[in-house]
Amino acid sequence: MDEGDLAYEAVTNAIEAGARYIRLSIRKEDGRWYYLVEDDGAGPGSGMDVFAPGFSTKGSGRGRGLSLLKERHPDASLDRRGGLTRLSWTAPEGPVDVSAMAMLFSKAWTVGAGLVIEVAFDGGAFSWCVDDFTHLGALDEGMNMAAMRKLIQSTLSFEKE
């Protein structure tokens, strides 16, 4: 699984756990990406080892995503602050997975959850929310993930110029 897969998994976990607001923040600092997934879901409950293989609140056969994340990034941690669940980890520098972002917006829109994705690097910072794509027609016209990818990519490419 690549970094985009892991970020997809983390946000999907929050959406499937019933969160109505999710924020994925990806920030580059000192040559590393700092990932943070924040959501307003109920959270796993205190004292539970969410990174243990097989831990899941969604039934049997689940519970591999977070253990894979921990396996790959031992610094992964989860805490609760002010009613929000915060999952964070760091990863080596690499490309931002635009297609995973588009998939997440599509998924969030389907269930009516609010998703914000923020990317900050090299002095530039961008953010997108579900409404951005709705206004531009990429979601209202039938979850056009190709259009969403182009919109995100064009914003990120603009930054590089």
């Binding site: 699984m1 591999r64 894979l68």
Partner: peptide, 29 residues
């Protein structure tokens, strides 16, 4: 699914739907 490569699969379907201009197709997860 993701471990088995579902993200690549989904991207490929989205690309093909786009390439063929299939406005009647919706792709979800």
């Amino acid at each position: 699914g993701i471990q088995a490569g579902a993200k690549v699969t989904l991207n490929s379907i989205v690309d093909e739907v786009e390439a063929h201009g299939l406005g009647n197709v919706i792709v979800t997860q």
